[in-house]
Nucleic acid binder design. Structure first.
Lengths: 147, 147
DNA sequence: GCGCCGCCGTTGACACGTCAACAACTTCGT
DNA sequence: ACGAAGTTGTTGACGTGTCAACGGCGGCGC
C-alpha cells in the first residue's frame, strides 16, 4: 500500500507539473502566485507569504528571485521594517495565474478528485489532517526519544 | 481536501528524506538500492532497473553516476548487448541499504501507515491503484479531447 | 544608549529531476 | 549486405529544494 501511495504521489506530481508547464508555470510558481493573487493590494511580506505556503526563507528567496527575473512579481522594501521585503504581483504575474488557474483546477479534478467517491474524499481529508496534526503535536520525534 | 493531501505529501517527503539522511542516503538512493539488493547476483541492466523503479533513462543515468562516485554501486559493460550497462551493488552499497532499511520502514509506519485504520489502508490502496490505472488506460488525456 | 539576542532575507554550494540532443549499437526490411 | 529506424545510455543546461553561513535590523535588558 505504501508502494502504491508512493507511486501515485509521483504520478500526480508529474501530471500536474506537465499541465502547468503548458501555461508557462511550474507548480512552485503556482504555489506562490495563488496566495499572492488573493492577497490585499500592496502585496505581502515575504515572511507572511512563507508562512502561508509553509516554505522556509531560503527556498522562498530563491524562488522569488527567479520569478522576479521572469517578471512575474516584484520586490519592494518594507516601509515598516527595514529588514523586510514586500512581494507583489506584476500585471504579467496576475495574468499568468488567472490564465493557469482554471486549467489547473480542472486537471486536479480529472486526475484525482473525480476518481474518488464522496466517502473516499472524506477519508482522504481525515487521513491528511491526522497525519499533519500528528506532525505538529510532536515537533521532534527524533527516532527513539527518552523523555 | 486537495490542499490537505498536497501538504501531507510534502510533509511525508520531508520526514522521510530527513530520516534517510541520518543514514547517509537520499530517497533516490534508497529507490535504487532497494531493487538492486533484491536482484539476482551480477546486478541488473540499467534498462531493467529503470523499468522497476519507473524512471526515465536520463534520471537513472545521473543518479547512477552520483552513486558510483560515492562508491555505492559500480557500472560494468553488458556482455550480451554492447549498448547496455550492468549495475551492481558494491559492498558499501549493500551495507548502506541493509543499515537503512529497518529504520526507513519503521519511519514510514510511524508517520503514516500506523496512523491509518485497516479500512483506511484498504481505501488508500484502492485509490492509488485506481489513479494509476486510469493513467495507463488513457496515455494522453491532453486537456479537452474531442474524440 | 549599548550590547546582546533573535528575526528577516540573501547567498553559495550542492543534490535532484527534466528536457533535448547526441553517440553507439541493434534490428529489420530490402 | 546495407541503410533506415529504433533502442540504450550519456551529457549539458536549467529549474528546483536543502543546508549552512552571513549581514542587516529590531527589540530587549541593563
Amino acid at each position: 500500500m505504501w508502494r502504491a501511495f508512493y507511486e501515485m504521489r509521483r504520478h500526480l506530481d508529474r501530471v500536474i507539473e506537465r499541465q502547468l508547464a503548458e501555461t508557462g508555470l511550474s507548480s512552485a510558481d503556482y504555489d506562490l502566485l495563488s496566495p499572492l493573487s488573493e492577497a490585499p493590494p500592496g502585496g505581502l511580506r515575504a515572511r507572511d507569504l512563507g508562512n502561508l505556503v509553509g516554505w522556509d526563507r531560503s527556498r522562498l528567496s530563491h524562488q522569488i528571485r527567479r520569478m522576479e527575473q521572469r517578471g512575474l512579481l516584484i520586490r519592494r522594501e518594507c516601509p515598516t521594517d527595514a529588514r523586510g521585503t514586500v512581494i507583489d504581483l506584476t500585471q504579467a504575474g496576475r495574468a499568468a495565474i488567472e490564465a493557469a488557474a482554471p486549467g489547473h483546477v480542472d486537471n486536479v479534478r480529472r486526475h484525482f478528485v473525480d476518481l474518488l467517491s464522496p466517502e473516499e474524499v472524506d477519508t482522504m481529508t481525515a487521513i491528511a489532517t491526522r497525519v499533519l496534526d500528528r506532525a505538529t503535536d510532536r515537533p521532534a520525534p527524533e527516532t527513539a526519544e527518552r523523555e
